[in-house]
């Protein structure tokens, strides 16, 4: 299954608004998804007689509707995403966004949302990243029903942002990739250490066992809290690891691998 198919399937999930809008010129669609047991109400024209003969029970062919998708992405390129152990988190986030846009088919639309406007994916973005403003721009600029991906470390997320997140989830099919802290598995520091902040400043302090334990607990708590808040607001969430942005996106949709299909 491709990412696009996964998005289209997402449309049919209960309580999800769904991604994309039906096109008027492509008909019902014939893209095969799966065979399943017939349930009363299924269109009898979709019964696969050969499969029925093999199985002994009525089997229905499930096909995708042909729709045009709007795929939008918010890419957090703030300084805090430029850190990582082996490589910067922003590289993985870019990878995820490229895969996201690569899932678009002919007739689909792709947009990158910046803090001040939405533009084609590879148009230059000059404004400094601001999560809240980017989400507000997305809400105002994107067509209803589009699929929105936000790849960020969500450091700028506050408890009072839930109204904004809920309004986005009601209007769009929202997916959040939450960048995993590079030191999620443990602080690689001990003793008197120097730290530089990605957004400026420096710190010199003593890091002992107590500090390491406190950091590990705080990082895990923040990660869990961010996922929980986004899910509560109706978002699909996944973890963005610095090693592989594409795999992170695939994991979010429950796919083993993403078969990128350029439109």
């Amino acid at each position: 299954m491709t990412l696009r198919e996964a998005l289209l399937r997402g449309r049919r999930r209960p309580r999800r608004f769904g991604a994309g809008s039906p096109t008027s010129y492509r008909g019902d669609g014939y893209e095969f998804v799966e065979l399943r047991a017939y349930v009363p109400g299924d269109d009898v024209r979709r019964i696969d007689w050969a499969a029925t003969a093999r199985a002994g029970d009525l089997q229905t062919r499930v096909v995708l509707e042909d729709v045009a998708l709007t795929l939008a992405a918010v890419l957090d390129d703030s300084p805090s995403m430029r850190v990582g152990r082996a490589r910067a988190l922003i590289d993985a986030a870019r990878e995820a966004c490229e895969t996201w846009f690569a899932a678009a088919s002919a007739g689909d639309r792709c947009l990158r949302v910046a803090p001040d406007h939405a533009s084609p994916p590879y148009a230059p973005v000059t404004a400094a990243f601001d999560l809240r403003r980017s989400l507000q721009t997305a809400r105002a600029a994107l067509p209803r029903g589009c699929a929105l991906l936000v790849a960020s470390d969500w450091f700028a997320l506050h408890d009072d942002d839930d109204a904004l997140l809920v309004s986005l989830a009601r209007a769009f099919d929202c997916t959040a990739l939450v960048a995993r802290d590079p030191w999620y598995d443990g602080l690689p520091l001990q003793g008197i250490v120097r730290l530089r902040g990605a957004d400026g400043g420096s710190l010199r302090a003593y890091i002992g066992r107590r500090e390491r334990a406190a950091f590990a607990a705080a990082v895990r708590e923040r990660d869990a809290k961010t996922h929980a808040m986004l899910q509560r607001c109706g978002w699909r969430t996944g973890t963005l690891r610095e090693e592989d942005g594409t795999a992170a996106l695939a994991g979010t949709f429950g796919l083993h691998a993403i078969e990128a299909r350029r439109g």
Partner: peptide, 19 residues
């Protein structure tokens, strides 16, 4: 020195000893 995403978060989480 090592770079971290957010010193503010680090300081709040760890309360590092500066003494």
């Amino acid at each position: 020195s090592l770079e971290y995403s957010s010193l503010q978060f680090f300081a709040q989480a760890v309360r590092p000893r500066t003494w």
